[in-house]
Design a protein around this nucleic acid. Structure first.
Lengths: 301, 301
DNA sequence: CTGAAAGCGCTAACAG
DNA sequence: CTGTTAGCGCTTTCAG
C-alpha cells in the first residue's frame, strides 16, 4: 500500500513543498553561518565542510557575509532569523552583545568556530589560537631567532588575531626587540609590512605572519629586494593554505583544521536540533608544518 | 490604525513566519547558485556579489557546491528545488541534459555565468572566453613570442577551459610548436606543468596559464630553478586575483569581471521573478592587465 | 477602511 | 493499518 502510493508519487514527479512542511512542523532544516568573507581559503574550506555535512543530512546552509563588521553581522542575523534559520554558526568569539542577546531571546542554538575556549559559555569549536601563536614563536626561537617581527591583519574586528597576538607576546616575554605590524589582511598588506620591516634600524631575523596570505606578500617583497629566504630572513605563516607547500621556498606554517571544524560544527548543531543533545566545545588539533621558509639564524657579519 | 498595529508588532518583537508566507504566496524569495568550488577566489568573489545583491532586496542565496561534477550538480539542483529555490544560477554553459530538463519542467528561471554566448538559448552573463584567450595569445605574440606553452585545468567538466583552449588554438594558427598541458587546477598543478615544460627539448619562451592559480605554481617552480621571469621565460595568467599585482614579478593577466557578473546575474533573476522581465545575455568587459611577468622574447645564445 | 474567512500543502493526532 | 481532520501563520478575497 505504502509502496503503491510512493510509486505513484514518483510517477507524478511529486516533490513535497518545503514551506508547507516547515509551517506544519515548525522546522525549516536550515542553519545559518556568518563568516567575515568568503574570499579567503580558510573560510572557504570551513564553509564547504559545513555545507557538505549539512546537506548530507537534508539540511540547508544559508550563508551571510559580514565583512568583519559587527553591525552587519547583527543585521544579517536578523534577516536569517526572519528567513527561518534554526541555528547559527558564527566565526570567532567576539560578537555584538545585541546579536548574542537576539539569538538568546529567540532560543537559537549557537556555536562559535575558529576558536577554542574552555571558559566560553557558548560552545566553541576550533583551535587554541593563543597556544598556536606561542608554539609558532617557540618554533622560531628553537632556530635561534631572537629578533622577530610579527605581522597581522586588523585587530579591530578579529578576536582570533587578538588572541594570537597575546600568545605571541607571552612567548616573547619581555623581549622588547619585537616589531609588530598591523596591516590589511591581504597579500598587499604583507608586502607593505615587509617594506616597513626592511626600513627598520635593526632588521629582524624572522617574520611571523598570522596568515599565509600575509606571508605570501612578505615573501614576494623580500624576493623583489633580493633577500634570500630563509638565509637572510626566515618567514613563517598561519593557515596552511593549499599553495603553501608549493611556494618557493615552501612555507613553514601552522595547519588549521578548517574542514574538520566545519564538519564538527554542523554535526553538533544537527544533534542539538534533533535530539536536544547538548553542544560542547572542541579543541581540534593544529600542527606546525616544518618546511623551507624557516632556517637557523645567521650571525651578522 | 495601521500605525498602532505596526507599533504593537514592533513592541512584541513580531517576526513574520517565512514558511507561512512562502506557503501562502507560493514565493520563497530564495535563489540557488551552484558553483564548482568555493575555494577559488574567482568563484568566491562572484558568489559574494550574488549574495550581497540578493540579500539587499530581501532575497536569500542558497549555495551548493558541485565539485565540478555534473551528476553532483544535478543532485544538488533537485535538493534545491525541494527546498523551494525559485531560480537558478549555474556556472558555465555545459550541464547535464537531465539538469536542464529538470529546471525546464519546473519552469525555474535559469542563467549561466562565467561565459558569454550569443547563441545560447539560456541567457549567459559573463565574458567571451574564446576571445579572451585569443587576446592573451596575441599579447604574447606582440612581445615576439612564438614558442608558447599553454597550461590549464581539467577539460572534462569545465567548458570555460575548453572554450579558452579553442580560442588559443585559433590564435596560434597552425603553429605546431605549441605545447599544451592539462593539469590539476591548483598551484601544485602549475608547478608540475612547469616541471614538464622545463624538461621539453625546445623550451617555450612564454607560458600562458588559464588561471592565476596555475601561474602562481609555474612562477614558484621557475624561481626554484633559478629561471628569471620574464627574462628567461614570460608567464601570463587569467583571473586577476588579488595577489597577482603584488606577486614578484607582478603577474600579467586578464581581469575577469567576477563581482559585476554576480551582481548582474542576481539582478536579472530578481527582475525576472518580480516583473517577469525577460533575461538576456550580457557580455561583460574583461581586460588584459599588462604587468611585469611578460617581456620581449630573447634570442637564444 | 476594517473585519472575517478561506485556503496554501503539509503533519500529527485520532477515529474507524 | 487505513482514512479523516484540525491547524501551522500567512495572504487574499470578499463582506460589511
Amino acid at each position: 500500500m505504502r509502496a503503491t502510493v510512493l510509486a505513484a508519487a514518483k510517477k507524478l514527479n511529486y516533490v513535497p513543498n518545503p514551506a508547507a512542511r516547515a509551517l506544519s512542523t515548525n522546522r525549516s532544516k536550515t542553519v545559518a553561518a556568518i563568516i567575515p568573507t568568503i574570499d579567503h581559503s580558510v573560510y572557504a574550506k570551513y564553509i564547504t565542510a559545513v555545507e557538505k555535512t549539512l546537506s548530507a543530512r537534508g539540511y540547508t546552509l544559508v550563508l551571510a557575509i559580514s565583512n568583519a563588521d559587527a553591525q552587519m553581522e547583527c543585521d544579517a542575523a536578523e534577516k536569517l532569523i526572519a528567513m527561518g534559520a534554526e541555528a547559527f554558526i558564527l566565526t570567532g568569539a567576539k560578537h555584538s552583545a545585541a546579536l548574542i542577546d537576539l539569538l538568546d531571546r529567540c532560543a537559537k542554538p549557537l556555536v562559535f568556530t575558529s576558536v577554542f575556549d574552555d571558559q566560553s559559555a557558548i560552545p566553541t569549536i576550533g583551535y587554541d589560537n593563543q597556544a598556536l601563536a606561542k608554539a609558532a614563536i617557540a618554533h622560531l626561537q628553537e632556530h635561534g631567532h631572537r629578533d622577530i617581527a610579527v605581522v597581522y591583519g586588523s585587530l579591530a574586528e578579529n578576536d582570533r588575531t587578538v588572541t594570537r597576538l597575546k600568545g605571541a607576546r607571552m612567548a616573547l616575554g619581555s623581549a622588547d626587540n619585537t616589531l609588530f605590524f598591523e596591516v590589511d589582511l591581504s597579500v598587499e598588506g604583507g608586502r607593505r609590512a615587509a617594506m616597513e620591516i626592511l626600513n627598520t634600524d635593526k632588521r629582524p631575523s624572522a617574520i611571523l605572519c598570522f596568515s599565509d596570505v600575509l606571508a605570501l606578500g612578505v615573501m614576494f617583497l623580500l624576493q623583489s629586494q633580493g633577500i634570500r629566504i630563509p638565509l637572510d630572513i626566515s618567514v613563517m605563516g598561519f593557515d596552511n593554505l593549499d599553495w603553501s607547500r608549493q611556494s618557493y621556498p615552501s612555507l613553514t606554517t601552522i595547519d588549521l583544521p578548517a574542514s574538520q571544524m566545519g564538519a564538527e560544527a554542523a554535526l553538533q548543531i544537527m544533534r542539538r536540533l534533533e535530539e536536544d543533545h547538548p553542544m560542547s566545545s572542541l579543541d581540534l588539533p593544529a600542527k606546525i608544518m616544518r618546511r623551507g621558509s624557516v632556517g637557523p639564524v645567521r650571525h651578522r657579519p
